[in-house]
Design a protein around this nucleic acid. Structure first.
Lengths: 126, 126
DNA sequence: TCGACTGTACGAGTCTGATCGTACTGCATG
DNA sequence: CATGCAGTACGATCAGACTCGTACAGTCGA
């Protein structure tokens, strides 16, 4: 997984007209890479985040605090950014909060069945 | 991805009666972990290996040389070991060679659809 | 028995990612 | 305007992975 989104030419950069809720920079659907997405999902914490989004929301965006993860804010920022830059989630700025949801349609179009595996995943045991 | 197979209790250790072609140590089906498998598949080189095994063999084992990858032997050993320890491939010792194949049945049982994504993957572009 | 061959083990160098503290930005509400 | 809050940016630290050279082990055929 690259530290940045990748070559800037491949990134949807929406300058975002001062304060309006628009999606943060993310890879376009056609630029989603399987190895990058799998890398983003190879972390248990991020798997937990995506699974929770899939099972308990799907239609609404959620801020970081909604997940109830007991980690420092800077750690959460790191993981949410990783998910967004891999193309797994989309983030929008709603006033104070930055809310996330899974790019279900995009991921199902490019990697059908992948999200089912995430939804069926369990944090620890068999 | 752990550097070892994991807790030794969770590893199928077949003492392998002196020279007979038996599977090398690998995680049991029920011990396969999604995050570990995804981590193993998040590397382009390993994705290439698994895809080649899926598309061009499926029924037969193949030694490292068969893949025609232009890397030092020690690098290849590293990746084949990573795949085996994650439970993606099985390796058997046939005389001189150590041959690999994908654990198709096991992976389809635990993570249905995952191998289809790997088979559909392309090394570089959309 | 002596190479030739396949693959491993071990170690070093390098790099990336995970974690987290601290300081900061931006928005909202009083 | 002042305060509080959500989240980021930056930097440090640490662990793990990737890459590879070198040395070694086991097997097969001449």
């Amino acid at each position: 997984m690259p530290s940045t989104v990748g070559p800037l030419s491949a990134v949807k950069v929406l300058p975002e007209p001062a304060g309006l809720p628009g999606p943060l920079p993310e890879p376009a659907v056609e630029d989603l890479r399987l190895e990058t997405v799998l890398g983003a999902l190879s972390d248990p914490l991020r798997l937990l985040i995506v699974r929770k989004l899939l099972l308990e929301s799907e239609q609404f965006d959620h801020p970081c605090g909604w997940f109830g993860i007991d980690r420092p804010k800077s750690s959460l920022t790191h993981h949410f950014k990783a998910l967004r830059e891999a193309g797994v989630t989309r983030q929008r700025q709603y006033g104070l909060e930055r809310r996330s949801h899974v790019r279900v349609a995009d991921l199902n179009a490019r990697f059908p069945g992948l999200l089912d595996l995430v939804a069926a995943w369990t944090p620890d045991a068999p």
